[in-house]
Simulated scan of single mutants.
Amino acid sequence: MDKIKKLPDTEFEIMKAVWDNEKPITTNKLMEAIGNEKGWKVPTVISFLNRLVDKGFIKTEKNGKERTYYPLIEKDEYLKFETSNFLKTYHGNSIFSFVSSLYDGKKLSDQDVQEILKIVEKGEK
């Protein structure tokens, strides 16, 4: 896949279930993992899966009566993309801006700040 694209929330939910379960995963397993909880019907889940196949996030194989799905994009790879995109869009690629917004909003504890400082110090060496 040349370029990863942002997934809608519902497709991301499906991908999380694909990543977090043993591979390959079946439609039935996805229904158990997420579909029933969300109140989705099987055709809805299949529609999301087909979109993810079309976007190159997963591949599918037919095994008898059942379809199996495998991730083509790993979770870490997608999370790096999303994090980078978030920093660029909302913080002008500034880690300082991001951390500052969390700190000013009291979302970071003093321990969090100390851990961030340790990471920064390691990077400077």
Rank of each mutant, 00 (worst) to 15 (best):
D76V: 07
T27S: 09
P43T: 04
P8L: 08
F96K: 14
T60V: 11
K6C: 11
D112L: 05
D54W: 01
K118D: 14
D76H: 09
K118P: 07
S94T: 06
S100Q: 14
K23W: 15
S97N: 15
K41H: 12
I73H: 00
G105P: 06
G64Q: 00
G56L: 02
N85V: 07
K125F: 12
N93C: 08
Y69F: 14
E32M: 08
F98L: 15
E115A: 13
E22H: 13
I116W: 02
E61C: 02
K16Y: 09
A33I: 07
S47I: 09
K29W: 00
K38N: 11
N36D: 15
M1P: 10
M31C: 09
G92E: 15
D9M: 03
I25G: 03
Y69I: 00
N36P: 01
E77D: 04
E11M: 05
A33K: 00
Y69W: 07
T27Y: 02
L72P: 06
F96I: 14
Q111T: 15
A17M: 02
V45L: 05
I25M: 00
L72S: 00
D104P: 03
V42C: 05
S94H: 05
K118Y: 13
N21S: 11
E11L: 10
L49S: 02
T26A: 04
T89I: 07
E124C: 12
P24D: 02
R51Y: 11
T83R: 10
T26M: 06
T26P: 03
E61I: 09
G123M: 13
M15V: 05
E66T: 10
K23C: 12
E61Y: 06
E74T: 04
E13T: 14
Q114C: 10
F57Q: 00
G105W: 08
K122T: 14
N50M: 04
I34G: 05
I14D: 00
E32N: 10
F96P: 04
I95Y: 14
E82Q: 08
F12Q: 02
F48S: 09
M31T: 08
E66W: 07
K122A: 13
F12S: 02
G64I: 00
Q114I: 10
M15C: 06
K3R: 11
G92V: 10
Y69V: 03
V53E: 06
S101W: 09
D2A: 13
K41I: 13
R67M: 05
P24A: 01
S109E: 06
I14W: 00
W19I: 04
E37S: 14
M31F: 09
F48M: 10
K5E: 15
Y90N: 05
V99L: 12
T68N: 06
S100N: 15
F81S: 01
V120C: 12
P8V: 11
K3Q: 14
E74I: 08
L49E: 03
G35H: 05
K118E: 15
E11P: 00
K107S: 01
L117I: 15
L79H: 04
I14Q: 01
K88Y: 05
Q114E: 15
S109P: 01
A17Q: 04
Y70K: 10
Y90H: 11
K62D: 08
